[in-house]
Simulated assay, not measured.
Amino acid sequence: MKSYLFLLLAIFFEIVATTFLKKSEQFTQLKPSVITIVGYVLAFYFLSLTLRTIPVGVAYAIWSGVGIVLITFVGIIMFRQTPDLPAIIGLILITSGVIVINLFSKMAAH
């Protein structure tokens, strides 16, 4: 269970880092650039802790899938980015994939 807490922290820091990457304006703004770098370092640190017990493919699928869905919501709320129908369908498929891995895969750590 601790591994999933580390994975949630990795996802959280990746979302923070990606949000501030947008705000860094190609690393021309100091504060958002620093937050981006620190966020990605922490995201990869917690992802590495996750990999002690969760297989790399499963952990990465969850990390990237949940991160994509959540950063899309951040884009909608903070940057007024509206996903079109194909994007919404893709997000549903990504979410479905993460659910299938967690519920049915024998690879996933339980």
Rank of each mutant, 00 (worst) to 15 (best):
residue 1 M to P: 09
residue 1 M to F: 06
residue 1 M to E: 10
residue 2 K to C: 09
residue 2 K to I: 09
residue 5 L to P: 07
residue 6 F to C: 09
residue 6 F to Y: 15
residue 7 L to M: 07
residue 8 L to K: 07
residue 10 A to V: 02
residue 11 I to V: 12
residue 11 I to D: 11
residue 12 F to W: 06
residue 14 E to G: 10
residue 15 I to F: 12
residue 16 V to M: 00
residue 17 A to F: 07
residue 18 T to L: 06
residue 18 T to M: 07
residue 19 T to W: 05
residue 20 F to N: 00
residue 21 L to A: 12
residue 21 L to P: 06
residue 22 K to S: 14
residue 23 K to H: 08
residue 24 S to W: 03
residue 25 E to R: 11
residue 25 E to F: 12
residue 25 E to K: 13
residue 25 E to D: 09
residue 26 Q to N: 10
residue 26 Q to P: 03
residue 28 T to E: 02
residue 29 Q to F: 15
residue 29 Q to I: 02
residue 29 Q to W: 12
residue 30 L to P: 08
residue 30 L to W: 05
residue 32 P to L: 11
residue 33 S to G: 08
residue 33 S to A: 09
residue 33 S to H: 03
residue 34 V to I: 15
residue 34 V to E: 05
residue 36 T to D: 03
residue 36 T to A: 13
residue 37 I to Y: 02
residue 37 I to E: 01
residue 38 V to D: 11
residue 39 G to I: 05
residue 40 Y to H: 10
residue 40 Y to D: 06
residue 42 L to H: 01
residue 42 L to I: 02
residue 44 F to M: 14
residue 44 F to I: 14
residue 45 Y to H: 11
residue 45 Y to N: 10
residue 46 F to N: 05
residue 47 L to H: 04
residue 49 L to C: 12
residue 49 L to K: 12
residue 50 T to H: 07
residue 53 T to Q: 08
residue 54 I to D: 05
residue 54 I to F: 10
residue 54 I to Q: 06
residue 55 P to A: 10
residue 56 V to I: 09
residue 58 V to I: 08
residue 58 V to E: 02
residue 58 V to N: 07
residue 59 A to E: 00
residue 59 A to P: 11
residue 59 A to T: 01
residue 60 Y to Q: 01
residue 63 W to T: 04
residue 64 S to T: 14
residue 64 S to K: 03
residue 64 S to V: 15
residue 65 G to E: 00
residue 65 G to P: 04
residue 65 G to Q: 02
residue 65 G to V: 00
residue 66 V to D: 03
residue 66 V to R: 00
residue 67 G to M: 12
residue 67 G to Y: 13
residue 68 I to D: 07
residue 69 V to K: 10
residue 70 L to S: 13
residue 70 L to K: 12
residue 71 I to E: 00
residue 71 I to K: 05
residue 74 V to Q: 01
residue 75 G to V: 00
residue 76 I to L: 14
residue 76 I to D: 01
residue 79 F to E: 00
residue 79 F to Y: 11
residue 80 R to T: 15
residue 81 Q to L: 13
residue 81 Q to I: 12
residue 82 T to P: 05
residue 83 P to Q: 01
residue 84 D to M: 14
residue 85 L to T: 03
residue 85 L to V: 13
residue 85 L to Q: 03
residue 87 A to D: 08
residue 87 A to H: 08
residue 87 A to T: 06
residue 87 A to E: 12
residue 89 I to T: 04
residue 90 G to D: 06
residue 91 L to F: 10
residue 91 L to W: 10
residue 92 I to A: 15
residue 92 I to E: 06
residue 92 I to Y: 11
residue 93 L to T: 10
residue 93 L to K: 13
residue 95 T to N: 09
residue 97 G to L: 05
residue 98 V to E: 13
residue 99 I to N: 10
residue 100 V to M: 11
residue 100 V to Q: 06
residue 101 I to E: 01
residue 105 S to R: 04
residue 105 S to G: 15
residue 105 S to A: 15
residue 106 K to T: 04
residue 106 K to G: 14
residue 107 M to P: 05
residue 107 M to C: 07
residue 107 M to Q: 13
residue 107 M to V: 09
residue 108 A to I: 04
residue 109 A to V: 02
residue 109 A to I: 00
residue 110 H to V: 11
residue 110 H to Y: 08
residue 110 H to L: 11
